[in-house]
C-alpha cells in the first residue's frame, strides 16, 4: 500500500473499516478486503463477516486493538466502537 488516505470515521465501525479499505485499496470490495487483511495479518473471513454484520458482530480484544491501531480513530469514536463491537466476557 503506497499511501494512507485519512477518512472521517463514524460511530459505525463496520462502515468505517469499509471506507478505510475502499479509500486505500483500489480494488473490488472482496479483493480490497483480502489485501487489507493480508497486509495487516488479519483474517479475511473475520473482516468480511464483521463488515457485513453477519455471523460475527463482535471483535476480539486482539482484533479490535489491531484494527484501531491501523485506522487510528479519534478517542471518542474508539470509545463508542468499544461499547458497540468489543466482545464482552459473558458471565452468564
Amino acid at each position: 500500500m503506497a499511501k494512507v488516505v485519512k477518512v472521517e470515521f463514524t460511530a459505525n465501525m463496520r462502515f468505517s473499516i469499509y471506507l478505510y479499505i475502499k479509500s486505500n485499496y483500489l480494488y473490488t470490495d472482496d479483493q480490497a478486503i483480502k489485501v487489507f487483511a493480508f497486509d495487516n495479518d488479519l483474517s479475511f473471513q473475520m473482516i468480511k463477516n464483521f463488515i457485513s454484520g453477519k455471523n460475527e458482530t463482535y471483535l476480539s480484544q486482539t482484533d479490535f486493538d489491531k484494527i484501531c491501531s491501523i485506522l487510528d480513530p479519534p478517542l471518542y469514536i474508539k470509545k463508542r466502537w468499544q461499547k458497540m463491537y468489543l466482545v464482552k466476557s459473558q458471565l452468564f
Binding site: 460511530a11 455471523n55 458482530t57 463482535y58 458497540m84 459473558q90
Partner: peptide
Amino acid sequence: YRRNIPRVFTE
C-alpha cells in the same frame, strides 16, 4: 444469545 447479542445503538 451468548456470543452475538442483537442490538441497536443510537446517539
